[in-house]
Design a protein around this nucleic acid. Structure first.
Lengths: 346, 346
DNA sequence: GTGAAAGCGCTAACAA
DNA sequence: TTGTTAGCGCTTTCAC
């Protein structure tokens, strides 16, 4: 194979020479600052086009102390919920002329820390993060220096940072009310272990309060915290073997819903005939499950968009030397009724 | 709210002053080059830790002409297939000490071009791309200057670039053979419109050849190209109303499979009793559909890992001044048998 | 072993 | 309206 010579990278100087002007003039037409004679502008633009020149973002960012890009740290790219969120973020960024970099913490606080540092070293203008930990000292440090930061989907106590969440409390309230209205009075709830920061706590709380509001009492035996698929099956067996069997199950996560469905199938329990099942988070396949799943829908796209827009606002404010008071925005979930709780789909 | 003064960013100079050494010494301990007295190294490290200093990646990259990061351009983040691919890429990057930046072309050639330019301006060391177009002049340009580049999941004709794909031809061959072995002889295939570059062409070709190999003839009426959900339903109606009804359907995309399932449901056709259904791509929910779906599984994780590893190799080679001969790696799909084609799951 | 200084490619005063 | 020049924060010769 021929050894292709590594063509030296084009710089602003090459353009300047080609156009017969100084490098500052080239810079000016690229950045559209100052007045430039039309003829000059044309010459320069022609040179840029002819050479197919693209400015070095590193050099530009170094000088300007900004990169016009923001970072997103997600904790679970596998969850389809986040894909919808991502779309909202992408759209907002695109509209504002920001690029978006994505990193995955896999819900590991250590990896999360590395990801944040990575973004800081890259001089990103701001960060949106779905926090994996609630005591990361970096959070406080960033908040202290008013670094543009938005928490998404999870609240972190003790730090004042812009936060965009769904009303998880209301989510399970909606779910329980729906179930209660259908005459269910032994409603079990399944959760993955909460890590202290997750919306799952709020969802559990909403469940309890909704029960109380409907005159039902909270039976600890109906609260199942499972970690693995096997846990889930074991918990289900136990639940169905005792005396006070549940007549409905509330799942708090869409993967967990699949595991519950598996367990139910294994145990030959029919949904919704034998038991009602209500899931959290709409997904592409919610309506294709057997039976089509009644779910709590979170406004994922809107959450993403809101988070990105707030962040971009904060970045702009900081450039003007202002500091915005952090706020928490809470968006409302809705109930999507299908067949898994006993209703007939029209 | 108090106006927090934007703390001036720490630089290598601050560390040098704190440690009582020159900035070059600080640079040396950070980069682990040269010999450094243990005492000096410790002093510097202490200063770095004390100040919580993080080097500016822009400055460093500008000087070193490299960023130790690679870019990934995906065409459809919504497809769960890509999430598995992504995991493989992430793992490989992490192991090699590279960071990964992700951009989304949404299968739009124009956006794809912008994404590539964005990455080039950022001086990324290499790019993995799931091409959205086959005639992007940038491809040839990059190939010509031996820029580290890997095509993923789709081949592009006319340019010599490292490519990692699944054997789509074999995928549909497997599918058709399975169906034929079950006695099906009117096998329909559903595809989204191919954009000239997509694996769908190869999948269609595999379908035709497999039919021939099994002594079945290709009936154009059984090849359905649909764009929307409505198309899908219409096509299905037409298919089932005619004389030569199909006894099996081969879907070539996992979202399309959901649409097919919807259409079948609407038309009251039972799977697998009335018709067999075989899907392409394993997903988390394949086995939870009604009925559990028999699918062609692509080695998604492995594809991602392979692509990233090849790219990183190419980057290293280029740094040594060598040029690697581009190769195409083709990984093998497998058949995952469940219940949607009539088998009984044990 | 360590420091001084040049420069990576660009932007933004400051002059002209 | 345009050119000259001083850095942005870092790495890397080249001296010592």
């Amino acid at each position: 194979m021929t050894d292709i010579p590594a063509k030296r990278k084009l710089t602003i100087e090459d353009v300047a020479r080609q156009a017969g002007v100084s490098i500052s003039t080239v810079s000016r037409v690229m950045n559209n600052t100052d007045y430039i004679a039309d003829a000059t502008r044309r010459k320069v633009q022609d040179a840029i086009d002819a050479l197919d020149y693209r400015p070095n973002a590193l050099a530009r960012g170094l000088k300007q102390m900004k990169t016009d890009s923001i970072g997103l740290i997600l904790s679970d790219l596998q969850n389809p919920f986040w894909l919808m969120v991502l779309e909202g973020i992408e759209d907002a960024c695109q509209e504002a002329g920001y690029s978006l970099l994505i990193l995955n913490s896999r819900d590991d606080p250590e990896k999360e820390g590395k990801n944040i540092k990575e973004f800081l070293m890259r001089q990103l203008d701001g960060i949106i993060i779905n926090p994996a930990s609630e005591d990361n000292p970096l959070f406080a440090a960033l908040a202290a220096e008013a670094f543009p930061l938005v928490f998404l989907n999870r609240r972190v106590k003790g730090v004042e940072v812009d936060t965009v969440v769904a009303d998880n409390f209301k989510g399970t309230m909606l779910a329980v009310s729906h179930l209660a209205a259908l005459g269910k009075n032994r409603i079990a709830i399944f959760l993955y272990p909460a890590n202290g920061i997750s919306p799952r706590q709020e969802r559990l709380e909403g469940y309890k309060q909704a029960l109380a509001a409907h005159g039902l009492e909270t039976d600890p035996a109906l609260i199942k915290i499972v970690e693995t698929k096997e846990d889930c099956l074991a918990a289900m067996k136990q639940l169905l073997s005792g005396s006070g069997k549940p007549d409905a199950i509330l799942s708090t996560n869409n993967r967990l819903t699949l595991e519950i469905l598996d367990a139910l199938g294994t145990l030959n329990i029919a949904v919704p005939q034998d038991i009602a099942l209500l899931g959290y988070d709409e997904t592409e396949w919610s309506k294709h499950l057997n039976p089509p799943l009644t779910t709590i829908r979170q406004p994922a796209y809107e959450m993403g968009r809101e988070a990105a827009e707030r962040l971009i606002l904060a970045i702009a404010a900081k450039r003007r030397g202002e500091t915005m008071q952090p706020v928490t925005v809470q968006l409302e979930p809705t109930l999507v009724i299908r067949e898994s709780c006993g209703e007939i789909l029209q």
